[in-house]
Amino acid sequence: MNRKVGAFAAALAVLAVTFCSAAWADWTLNMPRGVTTISPEIYRLHMLILWVCTVIGVGVFGAMIYAIVTFRKDKGAQPAKFTHNTKAEVIWTTIPALILIALAIPAAETLVKIEDTRDSELTIKVTGFQWGWHYDYIDEGVRFYSFLDRESNAARRLRSGIDPRSVENYLLNVDNPVVVPVDTKVRLLITAADVLHAWWVPQFAVKKDAIPGYVNEAWFTATQTGTFRGQCAELCGMDHGFMPIVVKVVTREEFDEWVAENAAPTMTRSN
């Protein structure tokens, strides 16, 4: 009995140490709130369902732990004889159903917003290929390829001898980032040239598959300037881990300048 308690305490201690040290280091434990009009809404949805699960978990795990601690044979517990209890069963079927409805309503509302790609002010065609991205600003005439940056690409070779920690934004940096204006509804037309890929920037809460023969739509309106990073999220062969996405959100003026500079038919590494 004591030994069991000891083992349990040891297990708890390990978990506790794990979580405390996690809190001290600058590790991310949660989904980012994001920098677009939709991303905080998805974050709130995530937190809502997480809290619902936590509350139910406290109840269910609490009941389990109470049963384990209380109804022990070594404490002289005598088994009861009941085999069912209709009232309890109706309750724990109905209440979860109500909770699910309460979750489904905000989820459906957010989903409707996410799918509404109307009234976009800028359209970028995004093409995934093995292994990089091609961006085509349809109305602005800017198009370019975007590959993993040179430093990461050298360091990520098998036994390269280069410490990844010495590379800035290791595996999350590209030669040519996407540039978009802030507070502008940007529509992405996502497709692929060879196999499946997926365009994912966590801070935008946008993840959409790039599929040969399909043009998928996604959109975002960034609400702050800055550089935001993501990766391909659909297995696409050996260099799937090495085709990051970098988006620079800039002011309208900076964006117009950037377009003016790059509207020429060619740019680095494009053809």
Partner: peptide, 21 residues
């Protein structure tokens, strides 16, 4: 989640007022 919940609740209820080892 509903039938899965029923499963988990029923297992817990099986232990309830039992004589556990």
């Amino acid at each position: 989640a509903i039938p899965t919940g029923v499963k988990v609740f029923n297992w817990t209820a099986t232990m309830w007022r039992g004589s556990l080892t």
